[in-house]
Amino acid sequence: MFNALIAAMLLQVAGAAPDARPAIVSPPAELSGWTSPRPLDAGRTAERATVLTLGVAVAARLPSTRDVRYVVRPEKPGGSVSYGGVFAFTVTTPGRYRIALGSGAWIDVLAEGRPAISVAHGHGPACTGIRKMVDFDLGVGRYVLQVAGNGTANLPLLVTKLPA
């Protein structure tokens, strides 16, 4: 029954356009670190979270979602074939911070185990390779960054403070 339905439906459809990779152009000054990422292995638990330096982009290598132990279950967890990771960063100056990603992966910023509420989100500047940006107003302290549901084992990632 179902296979026949699928076949009937696929008779109507046309081929999908292949993915287009945009040319990289320089991002705005506040995201300048994006263009020179350094490779870094993501952590698999909060206890072994990989430490990020603010303003320094990384080309993160992510483990399989099956091997990641999140502090809190991401609102949109990836499937078993996806990739994720756990990072940490420290804020010494209160202000607005931006998480920039090269994919549409789900992220959580946790303070003492509780998710911080984002204040803005959107796409990155065109043709920079930044697909997603999420902003948070953060006070002084240590934060855990959870990444969930990434489609590949590689993720360009940047955490940076925005100008006041």
Binding site: K76, G79, V81, S82, A105, G151
Partner: peptide, 9 residues
């Protein structure tokens, strides 16, 4: 369950 998509996302 995101495993219903090709890359689990």
């Amino acid at each position: 369950d995101a495993d219903l998509s090709i890359d689990g996302t």
